[in-house]
């Protein structure tokens, strides 16, 4: 078999996953796209292992490891998404902008810090009284 077939298919699958990661809004759909990218890498590993006739079968061993790591990743990722959904009521990535940088965010953080400092000062004053 020509080596270009699996290599080109893996490249196209990877770019499909890349598009999904960048364009999707729901966190679970982003996780699906990450799975597609990982699978493209797996296809490359298997194809190059068979092509090189590696006596250690490095490619296939690494494919199995990648599959296990992907399973761990999807478990942790889904539990994080579920926790975010429970706390915020949404799994929409565009709306999770608490750590976004920008002038408005800086002002909000500064005002929050000032508020916290004022609260602490008030508590100290109460304790002193």
């Amino acid at each position: 078999m020509h080596l270009a077939y699996p290599a080109v298919l893996a490249a196209l699958l990877f770019c499909t996953g890349l598009y999904g990661v960048l364009a999707r809004r729901n966190a679970i759909l982003v996780l699906m796209s990450v799975e597609l990218m990982l699978n493209a890498v797996n296809l490359n590993l298997v194809a190059f292992d068979v092509w090189l006739r590696d006596t250690l079968h490095t490619g296939q061993a690494l494919t199995l490891f990648t599959i296990a790591i992907a399973a761990a990743e999807i478990g942790i990722g889904l539990s994080i998404v579920l926790m975010v959904y429970r706390n915020r009521g949404t799994s929409d990535i565009d709306r999770l902008r608490d750590t976004a940088e920008g002038p408005a965010a800086d002002e909000a953080a500064a005002s929050a810090l000032a508020q916290k400092a004022a609260q602490e000062a008030a508590q100290k004053a109460e304790a002193a009284a």
Partner: peptide, 21 residues
């Protein structure tokens, strides 16, 4: 289901696909 930067994502993905292939 798709976010607003879909066209930027499409450009990035197509450019990456063309280069890789």
């Amino acid at each position: 289901a798709d976010s607003g930067n879909r066209w930027a994502a499409l450009v990035v993905a197509v450019a990456a696909a063309a280069a890789l292939v």
